[in-house]
Write a protein that binds this DNA or RNA. Structure first.
Length: 529
RNA sequence: GGCCCAUUCGUCUAUCGGUUAGGACGCAAGAUUUUCAUUCUUGAAAGAGCAGUUCGAUUCUGCUAUGGGCUACCA
């Protein structure tokens, strides 16, 4: 800056630009973001997306991703929630550089009480905050009494606090152990502008802000607003990327940075659009998942207090890569038309500039489609290995893994999830016990019993039961007798599968073998004649 | 009620004032498949409304409408 003063305007200008570039480069070298969940239950899918965007942004700029547990509400703390959050993000491949050790969170606000107390006192000493003694019921009464009551410059003189009480009275109350809170003192009628990386400048007038509670003596804990600012500052967070629900309180946060004198190192803000209900209005909630039949949480969760169960994407059979890909696209779009991205590709391409401003309705159907695509892209061996335990456990069958690989390869295009396989492959392992009525009506003709009997004899003669040979032999027989291929094959399928679905017929018969094929054919002829 | 944010096919979105408004999911039709699925082709489907700026607005501005968020000793 000295340089600027000593030189001509042009020089100064150039230098300024140069400095700006330097600052940008410097900032880039120390990008630090945090994901700061509150352990009040299962991590909502919207929170997962926030974590994902933070992670992508951090990694894109070679920065750090930090986990901070915001457990400043002792009332709402839920045991197990913290573990759940870590497990969920680990499953999805969202990794933390700080705030986690051996799978445990290392930064909890509840363990930093003394730190916040110090900063609260600083604000108190500077006259930028004051002590309030109003009880919840007194506040309620005021709200009843005055429409649209707000605890602010106009009303704080009416309340029971250190501004209306004498210093002696205040001290006496505190010494007597009376519960109190510390409130920020908002100066009215000031325009506060925050620059949001996604929305641009947002200005609000401080008069609409109330004197928010920053600290409560009841549990010696700060509230979100105070803890958040103190920690972000102390942890040198460069970018705060969070949900849009925080936008209205962002000016309060800016004010807090000012009060502490930290405005020049204040992080940049980016407020993400919300995830909305697929139908109707409002933001996505747990209820919507129950109602519409899809998970809104990454993992299964049982609330320890109510015993209420919520289903998760992992247990519903989703692949983490598919969930990440799907979620990334709900509110963000790459430069081209490509829609498939690995985590590394997302990191490479992510930019806050390409995050949309408006809320995104949760498109569950597309989520399923993504999983389907990922499933089809997986190799047969991997799918077979994933499927095997399910077959052993739920269906008590223990197929040869090579055979299972073939079966999976033939049917994976029909499945969205691993759990869909059984429906598509059961006939490889068990003979039909009934025959689908609709298929029967459509495919079982008058001549079918006789034709199937002939087919039985044809198949019986085949020694080499390979796909090619059995198919050729059967087709030769069909052609020699001028039968209608469709009639024969569909009736054949009904006999072997029991329905009108499945892979190529001879892929099936070769896999189940000649003996089983003949047995099923024979049984069907008897049952359907 | 007050404040803030947003508004392109049913849904997710592209478009950095000039396009037959593009892609994807879903839907429909056709082709392929002896069946189902896959795959391929095709189709229907959008700039909330009204002003203004401009030679020209989906794009910029304002108003209205609509949607969303916030308005706690919750985050």
């Amino acid at each position: 800056m000295v340089f600027c003063l000593l030189n001509s305007v042009n020089y100064a200008k150039n230098h300024y630009i140069w400095q700006l570039k330097l600052i940008t480069i410097m900032d880039n070298t120390k990008i630090r973001v945090r994901f700061a969940p509150s352990p009040t239950g299962a991590l909502h899918i919207g929170g997962v997306r926030t974590a994902l965007y933070n992670y992508l942004f951090a990694k894109k700029h070679a920065g750090s991703m930090i986990l901070r547990i915001e457990d400043t509400d002792s009332q709402r703390f839920v045991p197990g929630a913290e573990k759940y959050i870590i497990e969920a993000l680990t499953w999805l491949g969202i990794k933390f550089d700080e705030g986690i050790k051996n799978g445990e969170a290392t930064c909890r606000q509840s363990e930093r009480k003394e730190i916040y107390r110090k900063y609260v006192d600083q604000l108190l000493d500077a006259g930028k905050a004051y002590i309030g003694f109003d009880t919840p019921s007194e506040l309620d009464a005021k709200r009843q009494e005055i429409p649209n009551f707000q605890y602010d410059a106009h009303t704080r003189g009416l309340m029971k606090n250190s501004l209306t009480l004498s210093p002696e009275e205040t001290k006496a109350k505190i010494d007597a152990g009376e519960a109190y809170v510390v409130r920020i003192m908002i100066e009215p009628n000031q325009n506060i502008t925050i620059h949001d990386l996604i929305r641009g400048d947002v200005t609000i007038n401080s008069s609409i802000l109330d004197d928010k509670v920053l600290y409560k003596s009841a549990d010696n804990l700060p509230t979100y607003h105070l803890a958040n600012i103190v920690d972000d500052h102390l942890m040198e967070i460069s970018h705060v990327i969070r949900g849009e629900e925080w936008l209205p309180s962002a000016p309060l946060h800016v004010l807090l940075y000012r009060y502490f004198g930290w405005e020049d190192t204040m992080p940049q803000f980016a407020h993400l659009p919300l995830l909305l209900k697929p139908d109707g209005n409002g933001k996505l909630s747990k209820r919507d998942g129950d109602r519409l039949g899809f998970p809104v949480f990454p993992l299964d969760w049982i609330d320890p207090k109510t015993g209420e169960k919520s289903s998760g994407y992992r247990e519903a059979g989703y692949f983490p890569e598919a969930v990440v890909n799907f979620l990334a696209l709900l509110g963000w779009h790459a430069e081209g038309d490509e829609e498939f991205f690995t985590m590394d590709q997302l990191i490479e391409q992510f930019s806050l500039k390409r995050v949309s401003k408006s809320g995104a309705k949760f498109d569950y159907e597309k989520g399923k489609w993504f999983n389907h695509q990922y499933l089809m892209a997986k190799d047969d061996a991997e799918l077979a290995i994933a499927l095997l335990p399910l077959l052993q456990k739920d269906h008590n069958i223990n197929p040869n893994i090579d055979m299972l690989k073939s079966v999976v390869g033939l049917t994976k295009s029909r499945c969205n999830f691993i759990s869909d396989f059984w429906e598509q492959i059961h006939f490889f392992f068990e003979a039909p016990t009934s025959y689908d009525e609709k298929t029967l009506q459509k495919r079982w003709k008058e001549d079918s019993p006789r034709e199937m009997q002939e087919l039985y004899k044809v198949l019986e003669q085949i020694d080499d039961f390979s796909i090619e040979n059995s198919e050729k032999t059967v087709m030769d027989w069909i052609n020699a007798n001028s039968y209608h291929t469709g009639n024969i094959m569909n009736a054949f399928r009904l006999c072997i599968v029991g329905e009108g679905k499945g892979p190529h017929m001879f892929d099936i018969t070769t896999l189940i073998g000649k003996e089983e094929t003949l047995r099923r054919l024979n049984r069907a002829i008897k049952a359907l004649s």
